[in-house]
Structures are given as structure tokens and as C-alpha cells.
């Protein structure tokens, strides 16, 4: 039972991924397929980001005092934002969540929407050509075409 609790993120993410995959497999409407693919994709993002979480960690944005060569000038300025960091630094070293998966997923999201747009463009063109976005109807239309010996 503890194992399930400790890995609850994976358990739920697997359910989400499989739901998206089912939407891709089982639906014959192309837009619904793409929505399923998008759900699947977002679930993979969740998997990666949940791997990078560190308990008690902070977002990977460094305080200015930690930066070499910048600390002195900012310490003189003495802005109030750093006061919060001072107390934290006294008690314990700050731990940050792992920034590397964040970078991977950040770019993956933007590329994901670009490829999604390509898919939607193909769907729109399919609709213009066949008058339908249901796979069954397109298959039936192609089958009919083949029977009649029409090569397009």
C-alpha cells in the first residue's frame, strides 16, 4: 500500500496516458483522435515533470546572492526580496527541483502545438477532399473508388 502511495503520480499518469491512447485507438473521428493524442501527450509531460520534483524543493530560479560576481552589488542594494532568502539560507541549504526535465518539456510543449496544427491542417484538407472526417466513411469512399477503377 505504501508503494502505491509513494508512486501515486505514476499510477495516475498511467491511467491518464491509457485514457488518451484509448481515445486515439477507439474513436474514428479524426479531431477526437487528435484530442486523444493531445491528452496522451500532456500526460507524458506530467510523467516527466513529476520525476523532477524534489520534496521541499523550490522552483529552479536562483536567488541573486547565490550567483557568483553578482552577490556583492545586490547585497549593497539590499532589496527586500533577498531578505526572505537570508532566513532560508541560515537554516538550511536551499534545494531546487531538477531543471533538466523542465527544459525538455518546455520545448516539447511548443513543438507539440506546432505538430498538432499540422495534424489539424491535414484533417481540414481531408474534409475538403472527402466531405467527412470519419475514418469509416473515408475508407468506404476509397473502397468504392477502387471498385470503380478510378485512380485519383
Amino acid at each position: 500500500m505504501t508503494m502505491v502511495f509513494e508512486h501515486f503520480n505514476f499510477a495516475v499518469v498511467i491511467v491518464l496516458m491509457m485514457t488518451g491512447l484509448f481515445a486515439v485507438f477507439a474513436s474514428h473521428n479524426m479531431i477526437k483522435k487528435l484530442v486523444g493524442l493531445s491528452v496522451f501527450q500532456t500526460s507524458v509531460f506530467l510523467l516527466y515533470i513529476s520525476l523532477s520534483k524534489v520534496t521541499g524543493g523550490r522552483p529552479p530560479v536562483l536567488s541573486k546572492k547565490e550567483l557568483h560576481g553578482y552577490g556583492d552589488s545586490y547585497a549593497k542594494a539590499g532589496d527586500g526580496a533577498d531578505a526572505a532568502y537570508k532566513t532560508v539560507e541560515k537554516t538550511a541549504e536551499i534545494i531546487y527541483s531538477n531543471p533538466l526535465p523542465h527544459v525538455l518539456i518546455l520545448t516539447a510543449i511548443v513543438v507539440g502545438v506546432a505538430t498538432l496544427a499540422i495534424g489539424l491542417a491535414l484533417v481540414v484538407r481531408t474534409r475538403e477532399e472527402y466531405g467527412s472526417i470519419e475514418e469509416d466513411e473515408i475508407d468506404a469512399y476509397n473502397y468504392q473508388d477502387n471498385l470503380e477503377g478510378v485512380s485519383r
Binding site: 523532477s52 524543493g57 522552483p59 527541483s97 518539456i105 518546455l106
Partner: peptide, 27 residues
């Protein structure tokens, strides 16, 4: 909640904003 503020930012802007608009347009 997972400390990935940059990713959250992008996902909110791209996933919830742009891709919804695109899908509505395609629909």
C-alpha cells in the same frame, strides 16, 4: 505544484490557449 513554473506558464499559454483556439477553428 511540482515547482515547474516555466512549464506551467507554457502549458497554460499554449495548451489551454492556442491549441484550443486551433481545435475550435478546425472543428
Amino acid at each position: 505544484s511540482l515547482d515547474a513554473v516555466d512549464v506551467a506558464f507554457t502549458e497554460a499559454a499554449v495548451g489551454a490557449g492556442i491549441s484550443t483556439v486551433l481545435m475550435l477553428g478546425a472543428m
